[in-house]
Amino acid sequence: MCKKEQGHTKKVQALDAKEKKRYYRKNVEFFKLLEKIKLWPSRSGTLHGIKTITIRGNTAEIVTHCNERFIVRNSRNSRAARWLRNKWHLGICRACRVPEWKLEKYSATGLNQFYGSNL
């Protein structure tokens, strides 16, 4: 293989690694989705990073990196579940300091009804 071909294959591999798209099922259990994504959209539209999730039956307590606490119910049709599935958010919490790689991974993740991992 000549040097020109080697350089081209390295560029293709770098693009493939950068643009790797993950797929999850769209209608999975809400708490499993939260444990996997580790992001929480608050009512104001701010995206927070999740520090801990404590599941107690049909409810869970979420503690973010900015030490806000949310008590949420396990509902696939809730506002937060819809916002996570559709990737809606108005801003990112500065106190949580969500890393750029996590936001890129979240935006590259596809949620499909018939294709992807069941978590």
Rank of each mutant, 00 (worst) to 15 (best):
N67P: 00
E19K: 08
V72T: 05
G116H: 04
G57P: 02
S78Q: 04
N67V: 00
F70I: 03
G110T: 05
S78A: 07
A80Q: 14
C66V: 02
K21A: 14
I62N: 01
R22N: 14
C93W: 02
L15F: 08
F31W: 04
K4H: 14
P41C: 02
R85V: 06
T46P: 00
R22F: 07
E19V: 10
K51W: 12
Q13S: 12
I71M: 14
R43D: 11
E104R: 10
Y106P: 02
C66I: 04
N118Y: 11
G116P: 04
R22S: 12
R85I: 11
H48P: 04
G91V: 10
S117Q: 15
S42N: 07
L33M: 15
N58C: 05
W83H: 12
G49Y: 04
C93P: 01
V72I: 11
K51Q: 15
K51E: 05
N77E: 15
C93N: 02
Y115D: 12
A17M: 13
L84I: 14
L103W: 03
Q6T: 09
C2H: 05
G91L: 10
F31R: 01
S107T: 08
R73A: 08
N74Q: 13
T109E: 09
H89G: 08
I92R: 03
I53M: 06
N58S: 11
W101K: 14
P99R: 09
K10H: 08
K51G: 02
R22W: 08
T9I: 12
R43Y: 09
S78E: 05
I37S: 05
R79S: 11
Y106S: 03
V28H: 14
C66F: 08
K11H: 10
P41R: 00
I55L: 04
T46D: 06
V98H: 02
C66P: 06
E61H: 05
N77D: 15
T54N: 13
R97A: 15
E5M: 06
T64Y: 04
N67T: 03
R97T: 10
G57E: 00
L47A: 12
C66K: 02
G49A: 14
L34N: 01
L47Q: 10
